[in-house]
Design a protein around this nucleic acid. Structure first.
Lengths: 206, 206, 206, 206
DNA sequence: GATGAATGAGCTTTCATTCAT
DNA sequence: GATGAATGAAAGCTCATTCAT
């Protein structure tokens, strides 16, 4: 399909969406490579193949562009994890799948993932920071719900679920970051296995 | 009292050390409050009660001041954890003590801790970034050694120790950050207990 | 009702005129509120209920829109003053009427008036600036003619008429601006009286 | 006297003052030529022979630099007018001197004068705008005091003094602006004479 | 005729770093 | 050793103007 032909089909809003999407994609790349403060709007504009003004036409500030990037990226990830969870497997397999899915999606969207899994340091508008915390909170909630379900079914021990969800997110973030940082020694399968092992039965021998 | 006379009491290196220390203390405070990119040299100078030029007289750049802050802070923390570990308790109690110590020191030096436990995003000189990663690596090594010792004694299951150390650091960072962010619901003891519980025997019921 | 049908009722120029008028009204409001440099084309478009492109369809630049706004506004004012002057009163009453009329119209169109009475600071195309000065010059001429007529009739003393017209415009602008700025203490009648008093017989007792 | 020699004498604060003064002089020139919004900080820096950063080292924003320029310039003018007023002439001559002095100083500092005599249009921080209005208010007060003194002595007619002061400032501003705008036909003496004539006994014949 | 998304030159402001004293 | 005034290279953001539709 030729380009003109493809673009020709889209009109009005769709086309706008496309430009928004181009910007958000570029922003995700740059923000994840450089972090919020080090990312420059110029760079993002170049990466998105638009003029700098177009960034501001679509997002009224750098902070808001960041917020939009994180929020939309997050929604994609959560949606994907949820999609993979819609199964009627018994809980133990379900739990394993949860860990596996999150790791895979983390590694796919490593840029955004690290932002969401960790707290953002200061220097961003408070409103935007809160929005990001809210998004992260929803993700933690989602994990906590899964654990609650397992607890009801008698698979998860009697333990604080919110803290456990936080711990689960932290442990996955930590191991995945490590994987990404030392790709030579990386082994996704082994990492998933180790993570699942620790999360299931801890470090100590019985 | 004349200036020369007053200053005369302190000699050469000691005086430098004092000023160096004042600067490092101030830097630790500011860097932890604002993060590397948001911290301004002006602020640090004010907080250290020295002129801005003095910062550059002692540390040739912001990045190097940051590196020194992290390194020295880290050494303090590791030294303290090691000190608390010098006991001849049986391993299980030892392991519990390790977790407890790290959590306590993390909360005490939350600023530096989060920097060390997590990776630093870009924007800092590569040389400095490597220095910080090296420091973090040493901390992970330290934990891994502890686990290796437990494994030798038959307490730790057959598992990748490096990954486990990374996981342990990640889970502690995550839970402590959460504690610091939501201080109202914070309960250090319960957090330590939950952490220890997960790390010892996982989330699942046996 | 189809679009063509609805629009069909208004023809060519009239419709343009209407849109032109809407724009000029909005421009007068915004320019007077914010001044030339602070007024944004976006704002004017919103105030005129037209798209920004329509502004440029009708006026090829911000400067020219400003010039048109001032010129048309001015013509309205002068026309109104002239209309009120068409009387066969004896000169002294005529003179009083002149002052009264200008003050009233100034306060009605305070926005444009201040622009015309005062000189415009730079930053506008020279061509446009000259156009505005020309408009202002015509107003000064108009006053000077009135004074010349009074001089011929022996009512106005032997004095430089151009300078006097400039002075008259300046004194009215100054007092009216003051009235607008401190509306709480404002008293239009008293202001007119004072102005007339000074312009008629000066500040000193005879 | 050589430059090094001259500068050598000045130390610390004086030298700072000198740089401040250089900046304020340059700012007065540029602001008066271009107006607040059209004046660029770059230009002022070049005119002051300092780096742009130096502007911000001494004045924390463009608005505040503007405020300082106006305030300090104004103080100079008022001080000079007051200095010329310290005489024990009878009031009528005193009044003539007042007009003459203001006109002369206006023409000397035409840039600042027009800012002070007229109200500033919007777009400047409200705090700064108020400061400028305050400065202008003090000038009006000063004129009003002079008139009050003349009224007490029985020279000034029974008239609103505040409004009269405003009127006096306006008429002088208007005529001086006209003089500056059309320098070819300018005649300072004649302008002063006309102004004084109008202010003393008005436009009408007795 | 009318629109509004897109543009990019130009602006204010920040802040790590330097260097004369 | 210590200082802090001075610097200037960025960086975020604005807005008059254009042009494809």
């Amino acid at each position: 399909m030729r380009r003109a032909e493809r673009d020709g089909r889209m009109r009005g809003l769709e086309k706008i969406s496309n430009k928004r999407k181009k910007i958000l994609d570029a922003a995700a790349t740059i923000f994840s490579q450089k972090g919020f403060h080090q990312a420059r709007m110029d760079e993002i504009a170049v990466a998105a193949h638009v003029a700098k003004g177009t960034l501001y036409y679509n997002f009224s500030s750098k902070s808001l562009l960041f917020a939009a990037t994180v929020t939309e990226g997050m929604e994609t990830i959560v949606r994907q994890v949820r999609a993979e969870m819609v199964s009627d497997l018994p809980f133990p397999e379900h739990f394993q799948l949860l860990v596996t899915s999150i790791v895979r999606l983390y590694l796919q969207h490593s840029d955004l993932a690290h932002i969401i899994f960790n707290e953002i340091s200061s220097g961003i508008d408070d409103a935007v920071l809160m929005e990001i915390e809210r998004v992260r909170g929803r993700f933690i909630e989602f994990i906590a719900e899964m654990l609650a379900w397992g607890q009801q079914k008698g698979y998860i021990k009697n333990i604080d679920l919110k803290l456990s969800a936080v711990a689960l997110a932290g442990i996955i973030d930590s191991v995945c970051s490590h994987l990404l940082q030392y790709p030579e020694g990386a082994n996704e399968e082994k990492a998933v296995e180790t993570l699942h092992d620790i999360l299931s039965s801890g470090l100590l021998k019985r």
